[in-house]
Design a binder for these strands. Structure first.
Lengths: 172, 172
DNA sequence: GTAGTTGCAAAGATTTTGCCACCAA
DNA sequence: TTGGTGGCAAAATCTTTGCAACTAC
């Protein structure tokens, strides 16, 4: 596994997201700054749903003077503007996802890593449409999105008996 | 809405969980102390998936001398022992759920409140078996559980245009 | 020019830990 | 007894904020 998305993705949707970031930013009332472009690009190119701190380390490689506060601030702005998602992991550390296309998450109970899980059959199972079947509401709750959170143990933790995969990423 | 579960639940599964807590605790190698019983009981009787701090305030009503550290420590122990769940919310504040029966969550983007969502058609077992049609694995990932995280805007936030429901609970 | 943005440092919030007295087994 | 547990306070970690300098529009 690498830190970057698969090549076929990079040439497609990810590249498009990065290209359109500037206009999406302005549409949200946010100035199009160098820091924001790099923060978004680093997140969009990551497949590991990084924490703010992990992303900061990656951003700093391209923008050595960037501050952690700027990363935190903009992750929050992006999230509020719907440009990125905060991942629901059940851990207190916030993780972010630059891919807002419908997909699910595999969350490791041992190392808290998060992997994407695309499964057309589940969309076919009508999970999301079942949830939103009544005009986008469940009772009084206005449904925006429904995702699967699949929890268990990732391959790395099973083979290394609990050693945190995260460790490898921390040395960014 | 109240802070306690519906009466028909209280007389049933919730009461049973509380009754069996002692033996479940010892089975997990944890001593059966007064603090642990109250912490678990307060969580099991809550329907709002409280944060550690909110739960601490409720526990303190029954055990005035309890410390916040004890609540944090035991929530972690209970979670590791599989007695409770940490709720995946996409916010940095950890929330806990004393109900480990299969159910889903409605997570408000505005106030971060979490409500339960029971739907027989989408019950956890059906999801798990759908997800891991091949012997409990998705690729190399060992699946333990699969839940829906439904995000959107809760009734309170829609009617009060964003006022945090949480505020009501904070005054425990 | 002006409003919005950044970096820095400091503060705030959340969670964990060390240590000794105390309690359950 | 005796190892596990709890309370307290301090530390560690994570996130937000105030402010002066800088930048996009």
């Amino acid at each position: 596994m690498t830190l970057s998305r698969r090549a076929e993705d990079l040439d497609g949707k990810v590249a498009e997201r990065i290209t359109k970031f500037g206009e999406r930013c302005r549409a949200a009332g946010l100035a199009d700054t160098a820091q924001r472009r790099v923060i978004f690009r680093c997140l969009a190119e990551s497949i590991d749903h990084p924490t703010a701190d992990t992303l900061f380390l990656r951003v700093r490689k391209r923008l050595p003077k960037v501050s952690l506060a700027t990363v935190y601030r903009n992750l929050k702005f992006f999230s509020e503007a719907g440009l990125i998602d905060e991942v629901a992991t059940g851990r207190s550390l916030s993780r972010y996802d630059g891919n807002r296309d419908p997909h699910h998450h595999l969350i490791c109970k041992a190392c808290a890593s998060v992997a994407d899980y695309f499964e057309a059959k589940l969309d076919g199972l009508a999970l999301v449409s079942a949830v939103c079947s009544v005009s986008g509401f469940v009772g009084d709750f206005e449904v925006h999105d429904a995702r699967l959170s699949v929890s268990g143990i990732c391959a790395d933790c099973r083979s290394h008996s609990g050693r945190a995969v995260e460790a490898a990423y921390k040395n960014d």
